[in-house]
Design a binder for these strands. Structure first.
Length: 422
RNA sequence: GGAGAGGUGGCUGAGCGGUUGAAAGCGCCUGCCUCGAAAGCAGGUGACGGGGUUCCCUCGUUCGUGGGUUCAAAUCCCACCCUCUCCGCCA
């Protein structure tokens, strides 16, 4: 959510910002209009309420000294109904304004390269050359199936397309990755581990920005109006919804594993093979709450924490900087580390590290009290550290051997109990 | 799922139709005291929104949420949500 004050004072700046995200200026004008209407109404109704409050006090005084107050009461009856009428109108206008504010995207940070779509993202860093193989490397779905550790048919039978089943050392590898990633973030980088609910309510989804605009991507339970989390970002960020934390407690750094659920509504025909794009996947997510002045430094650290996992696994990757058109709804700046998949001859997004500035904090009302007593919104950031299924795919493709077996990365040896999957 | 109790400011907790935005205590802040701290004493201390002569003044809202009754609701009525206790069921 953008600050209403910012929209009032610098509508052109806001229009330019959302234009860079491929969003038209109409919403801004409507907000200004509705805001004007709201303030006019408020002025009127507040005046009447003031009148009523004063009259009530007089009535109370009269009653206390057992005097007749029926004249004043009769007079207030009209005022009361007028107030009720205006209050109804305020309520309608308030709801409209809130909806508009919830639907306007965050502004890109000034230094983000302007671009229309993901085609204009730039590679800002490359780590390790693409490895050479003495044989033709296979994609992970072939490796996984031939080793008997990924079963796509079973997933389709149990649940449908874009589901799969892990077996034996495949399941063990996934579980090892989850534990190891969390251990790294907790023990080496000072994050606090969280294990949150996967089902969240409407307020939480609104707080991080999935609702109201992106309901189509979410699984929803009809009976009790809960949503399956598409990322741990949702439950973990909402941990501090409507809270005021102390400045000295910032930054707050959480890491959480959850299963993630996505309808992938707009992705028909995309990544149909393998475990890259599925309806349910595991992810370890880092979430940070920081002071505004620290948030870009914290973004750098967050990216390093995400990429640290890739480095420890010795997986080649590069870092893509999102242009304005590919930032998404809530981010002010975003970097995606992408891992090399030799079996598919391409890089695949394996993490996404964003600074939301105060966009989510405003929606979710997450604030902090400064040392001198002032209250301000925190900045929130999050980044995958990492997407676990895709990490497994990357390991299968990068660590595959000519005989069809897969070496276990050194970092995972203590968790896997074997150094090779065959 | 059934029965009961309850949800009040950062926390504990009073109030149960009319100077109650809300007692008291704790916490926090400021001052005095002190070499300093503690204790003690004095004072201050919620959030949100509107308006203004914008380091301040003023008005409104806010006692789980949403409705209702009333001139007036933390206080009465209804619905929902949540917490706790007991019973049932259960990984």
């Amino acid at each position: 959510m953008l600050s209403l004050e910012l929209i009032r004072q610098h509508p052109d700046l806001v229009k330019a910002g959302i234009a860079a995200k491929n969003e038209g200026p109409e919403m801004v004008d409507e907000i200004l209009e509705v805001d004007r209407e709201r303030r006019d109404l408020l002025q009127k109704v507040d005046e009447l309420k003031h009148l009523r409050n004063e009259a009530s006090e007089q009535i109370a005084t009269l009653k206390r000294s057992s005097l007749d107050a029926s004249a004043a009461i009769a007079e207030m009856k009209d005022v009361g109904s007028h107030i009720a009428e205006l209050d109804d109108r305020v309520k309608v206008v308030d709801a409209r304004l809130r909806t508009l504010l919830l639907c306007i995207p965050n502004l890109p940070q000034a230094s983000v390269p302007v671009g229309k779509s993901d085609k204009e993202n730039t590679i800002v860093l490359t780590w390790h050359e693409k490895p050479t193989f003495t044989f033709v490397p296979r994609p992970h779905w072939e490796i996984g199936e031939s080793l008997g550790i990924i079963d796509f048919a079973a997933g389709a039978k149990i649940s449908g397309s874009r589901f799969y089943v892990l077996k034996g050392l495949g399941a063990r590898l996934e579980r090892s990755l989850i534990s190891w990633m969390i251990d790294v973030h907790v023990q080496q980088e000072g994050y606090t581990e969280i294990l949150p609910p996967y089902l969240v309510n409407r307020e939480s989804m609104t707080g991080t920005g999935q609702l109201p605009k992106f309901a189509d991507d979410l699984y929803h339970t009809d009976t009790d109006d809960l949503f399956l989390d598409p990322t741990a970002e949702v439950p973990v960020t909402n941990l501090l919804r409507d809270e005021i934390v102390r400045e000295e407690d910032l930054p707050i750094k959480y890491v959480a594993y959850t299963a993630c659920f996505r309808k992938e509504a707009g992705a028909a025909g995309k990544d149909t093979r393998g475990i890259i794009r599925v309806h349910q996947f595991n992810k370890v997510e880092m979430v940070k709450f920081v002071k505004p002045e620290d948030s870009y430094h914290e973004l750098d650290l967050l990216i390093e924490n995400a990429e640290g996992i890739l480095k420890k696994l010795d997986l080649p990757y590069h870092r893509s900087e999102m242009c304005t058109g590919d930032l998404g709804f809530a981010a002010a700046m975003k970097f995606d580390p992408e891992v090399w998949m030799p079996g598919q001859d391409r890089y695949v997004e394996i993490s996404s590290c964003s600074n939301f500035e105060d966009f989510q904090a405003r929606r979710a009302n997450i604030r902090y009290r400064t040392r001198d007593g002032k209250i301000a919104f925190v900045h929130t950031l999050n980044g995958s550290g990492l997407a676990v299924g895709r990490t497994m795919a990357a390991i299968l493709e990068n660590y595959q051997q000519e005989d069809g077996s897969v070496r276990v990365p050194d970092a995972l040896l203590p968790y896997m109990g074997t150094d090779v999957i065959r």
